[in-house]
Simulated assay, not measured.
Amino acid sequence: MKPIRVLIVDDSPVVQSVLTTLLSSNSDIEVVGAASDAFDAKDMIIEKRPDVVTLDVEMPRMDGITFLKRLMSFRPIPVIMISSYTWENSMRTLEAMDIGAVDFIAKPREDVKTGLWKLKHEIITKVRTAARTRIKPYGLFGKNGKRVPAASMTNSDKIIAIGASTGGTRAIERLLGSMPPNVNGIVIVQHMPARFTRAFAQRLDTLFPMDIKEANDSDRLNRGKVLVAPGGLHLQMAEDHREYYVRLQDGPPVKHQRPSIDVLLNSVAKTAASNAIGILLTGMGNDGADGLLAMRQAGAFTVAQDEATSLVFGMPAAAIKLGAVEVVAPLDDIPDIVLSRLKSG
Rank of each mutant, 00 (worst) to 15 (best):
V338E: 04
F39A: 11
K69E: 01
Y245D: 01
I172C: 06
M153W: 11
V303F: 02
G283F: 07
I277L: 14
I82V: 13
L71Y: 04
R296K: 12
K120V: 08
R147Q: 08
T133P: 05
D217G: 15
V338H: 03
L322G: 03
V254Q: 15
I160N: 04
I124W: 13
A308R: 10
M295Q: 02
T154W: 03
K136L: 12
V6C: 11
S12N: 02
S25C: 04
I65K: 05
I4H: 13
M179V: 11
A131P: 00
H234G: 02
T93L: 03
G139Y: 04
A273K: 14
R341T: 15
N89L: 14
T309W: 11
G283D: 07
A106V: 11
I4W: 14
A300T: 07
R132N: 14
V15M: 09
P252I: 04
E95K: 07
P253N: 05
G145H: 13
L23K: 06
E95I: 05
A319I: 02
L119P: 08
D306L: 01
A276C: 06
L19H: 02
S165M: 04
P137Y: 03
D157P: 01
G167Y: 12
A35C: 13
N216F: 01
P230E: 04
A150L: 01
V189P: 08
P108D: 09
I261D: 03
L342I: 10
G278L: 13
F104G: 08
R134V: 12
K213E: 09
L280W: 03
G139E: 06
I45T: 07
N266D: 10
L68P: 00
E30Q: 14
I99N: 01
Y138V: 02
L207G: 00
K255W: 04
K2L: 06
E122Y: 07
Q236W: 04
T54E: 09
E30Y: 15
I277K: 04
S260F: 10
G224A: 10
N266E: 13
M44E: 12
A150I: 05
N286S: 14
G299M: 00
L248S: 03
I124C: 09
Q297E: 14
D333H: 07
F196Q: 06
T309H: 13
M179G: 12
A298H: 01
V254I: 15
G323H: 07
V183C: 12
V32A: 00
R195C: 02
V183R: 00
D250L: 15
R134D: 08
P259H: 00
I212S: 05
S156R: 02
A308N: 08
V312R: 12
D250W: 09
S156Y: 00
E173D: 11
R61V: 12
T282R: 13
A318I: 04
E173K: 11
K213P: 03
Q249E: 09
W87C: 12
D111R: 06
V183T: 06
R134C: 10
